[in-house]
Write a protein that binds this DNA or RNA. Structure first.
Lengths: 221, 221
DNA sequence: ACAAGCATGTAACTGGTTACATGATTAT
DNA sequence: ATAATCATGTAACCAGTTACATGCTTGT
């Protein structure tokens, strides 16, 4: 256990409980909101401050589940309320243990996942999720282009292709750096599978976009 | 033009304007909210009531941009306020033109896109959108499984594979029914491209899921 | 007469986004 | 000194979801 010890961790869960008592009524709610759980994972991998978490998040889970720093701070607060995580005010310098000048809140807070948090994560993982949602704006735009004549979507499409190409490059770099080794344990193989999902998706997207592009150029005036 | 004529269409846009006057400040806002535009497309294809629209939506644009009926009613109201669409109270029977009993609001309202609506749609189509967002819950769950040991995700994964297979079947049926013809105009070719995007995505998803499945079964107790 | 489905909505809440604010630390 | 960036938040708003409500029409 790398966590700090946990005196005074079970704080106010009163509000959360009273909410639950009201809002559970109908059967099988099919829960949404994965954001806190995504954060739990990141925090299990490495206990961090909100700021730190936000930065790491962008370059790992953030690739398939984005969250802004405000969302992160809000969720950290809630999770602490639920007793899923514990906070530790990290002293900037390890000294000055009982001086009065330490009174000024030295700001950095390090969050760490508690047993209850792990349990919640494990519970959520096995709960049935939605699948097939997949909101893609460009698809709506293409449909609009089909409905009200050629509007010149080629530029926007080219822009998106470039974005997806860049993303693909990022993924391939991660692959080269982290997954070239022959022997991998289960966790590594799973993470590699996630990466491969991303790679294949982007490859496919780019190929599809390139095929489509000629259809989108406006007839010369 | 299949639309009814449009006396009294430019109604209250005052609230919308005053909001805009406040909320535009910083440069290049990168707009979200495609839902109203998706609805515009559906309404251009066929003027309908809210209820009708909700049903059609589920089986066309809804495949890549979902919206509930409450969302639809709300957006219809807003779009009418903006003068993008016109409402026509459809009389159930075409008779009883000036009887007093027609006073009870015969409920069905048919919405129809106005010029301003088409213009807005065209404007939106060319505005730069986000691209790469792609929130998939199962990917977060897999990452959690990598972090806190084998939790038995195989069942959930199998469920999702089945969902994606069903969706793929749906797409293939549409392909067989609507896109078997040799000669296609531009609109048809575009819509076919959208469908192909869906097909390829689902094919790839299912193949990936099947590959992954063995990694997810828990070691026998 | 009653049920199923048509048709339109209101209210309350949750989650995500944007803008704004503030103070501390580190590098030039 | 001053700028960058670390670090944490508040406030307001917008979009999406869920639950509830109501009245009409059509079929059995």
């Amino acid at each position: 256990m790398t966590c700090p010890d946990l005196r005074a961790t079970i704080t106010r869960s009163s509000r959360a409980n009273s909410q639950l008592a009201i809002s559970v009524p109908v059967g099988n709610p099919l829960e949404r909101m994965s954001t806190p759980h995504a954060l739990l994972i990141s925090l299990i991998e490495k206990p961090s401050s909100g700021y730190d978490l936000a930065r790491r998040f962008d370059r790992s889970i953030g690739y398939f589940w984005h969250a802004t720093h405000q969302q992160i701070y809000r969720e950290l607060g809630r999770m602490a309320e639920h007793g899923w995580i514990a906070v530790e005010q990290a002293a900037a310098a390890a000294s000055v243990s009982e001086g009065e000048e330490a009174e000024k809140r030295n700001r950095k807070k390090v969050y760490c996942v508690l047993e209850a948090g792990r349990a919640e994560l494990a519970r959520w993982v096995l709960s049935p999720g939605q699948g097939l949602d997949q909101r893609e704006e460009i698809l709506v735009k293409l449909r609009a282009d089909a409905a009200i004549g050629p509007l010149g979507l080629n530029e926007e499409m080219a822009r998106l292709i470039a974005l997806h190409e860049a993303r693909l490059e990022t993924y391939r770099n991660i692959e080269r750096k982290d997954f070239s080794t022959a022997r991998m344990d289960r966790a590594q193989r799973l993470q590699y599978a996630l990466l491969q999902r991303g790679i294949r998706f982007e490859e496919d997207w780019v190929a599809w976009g390139r095929e489509l592009l000629p259809l989108l150029t406006m007839p010369a005036a």
